[in-house]
Computed example of a mutant assay.
Amino acid sequence: MDLRDHIRGIPDFPKPGILFYDISTLLRHGPAWRAAMARLAGLIGPYRPQLLAGIESRGFLVAAPLALELGLGFIMLRKPRKLPGATIGLDYALEYGSDRIEIQADAVVPGQRVVLLDDLLATGGTMAAGVKLLRQAGAVVPATAAMIELTFLGGRSRLDVPCETLLRYDE
């Protein structure tokens, strides 16, 4: 099954000149969704994760079912003030501005192997910040993964760990 057949390109969203790669068409097609999860499981399995982490919000849609499939726990990297209890946060630069992500302070046992997932790897800023935050929390991050990579934006170069992706778009 070609998963590209289930990814919809939406021009000029969220602003003019941007082509948005919409995974909702894949999510609503059961066999394609199952195939995507099985393929991602095969890609990240060799890294021997003990937990999977997802970046808010579409990363949750990837990491949570994949964690279930692999029999692993799932943790969330969220926007500020969305998690209860003590948190650890990280501010990071975006192409135009800045953002912040947080994790619960007790989400990771020091030395635990955590693979970080998102739906899309674009410029790599959010994924790189997620890796840094997980390390601050005590995790070992052997790899990251995403359903889609926009290779022309060079996000992979901002990561100091391998990044596994299902689909790559070169333009």
Rank of each mutant, 00 (worst) to 15 (best):
F20P: 14
G54S: 02
D99E: 03
M127V: 14
Y92A: 02
A32M: 12
G138F: 08
V161F: 12
D12S: 00
I18P: 05
P14M: 13
T25M: 13
G42P: 10
I88K: 07
A64C: 03
A137I: 09
V108I: 08
P110R: 05
S98A: 10
A86M: 03
I75S: 02
I7D: 15
P142V: 11
G85I: 05
P31I: 10
D99W: 08
G155W: 14
E164V: 09
V115E: 09
T123E: 07
V131A: 07
I7E: 11
D106W: 05
I18S: 03
T123C: 11
L27N: 01
R168T: 15
K79S: 08
V141W: 09
L116S: 00
K15P: 06
L83V: 01
G154V: 11
A137C: 10
L117E: 05
K79A: 04
I103Q: 00
L134H: 05
G45P: 02
A137W: 11
I148D: 00
A137Y: 09
A128E: 00
A146N: 10
R8M: 15
G155Y: 12
M76G: 03
T87G: 07
V131R: 05
L66H: 03
P46W: 11
A53E: 03
I23K: 14
V140R: 11
G130Y: 10
R158Y: 11
L167F: 12
L134Q: 06
P46A: 14
G130L: 14
L121D: 05
W33V: 01
R58E: 03
G97T: 10
L94W: 04
G42N: 08
T144F: 10
V109M: 10
D118R: 04
M127F: 13
M76W: 06
G59D: 05
F20G: 12
T87N: 05
A36N: 06
Y47R: 04
F74D: 00
K132N: 11
G73V: 02
G85N: 07
R4H: 15
A67I: 08
Y169E: 14
I88H: 00
Y92T: 01
R113V: 04
R81A: 12
I7Y: 14
E164S: 05
G59A: 00
V108D: 01
A122C: 06
Q104F: 11
G59I: 04
P80F: 05
M1D: 15
I23S: 14
D5S: 12
F152S: 05
V161C: 11
Y169V: 13
L27T: 12
L83G: 00
E164R: 10
D170V: 13
Q112M: 09
V161T: 09
L77T: 02
T151V: 09
L3W: 13
G54A: 02
A64F: 04
Y169W: 15
G155L: 11
V140K: 11
K79C: 05
Y47P: 02
Y47G: 00
E149S: 12
E102M: 08
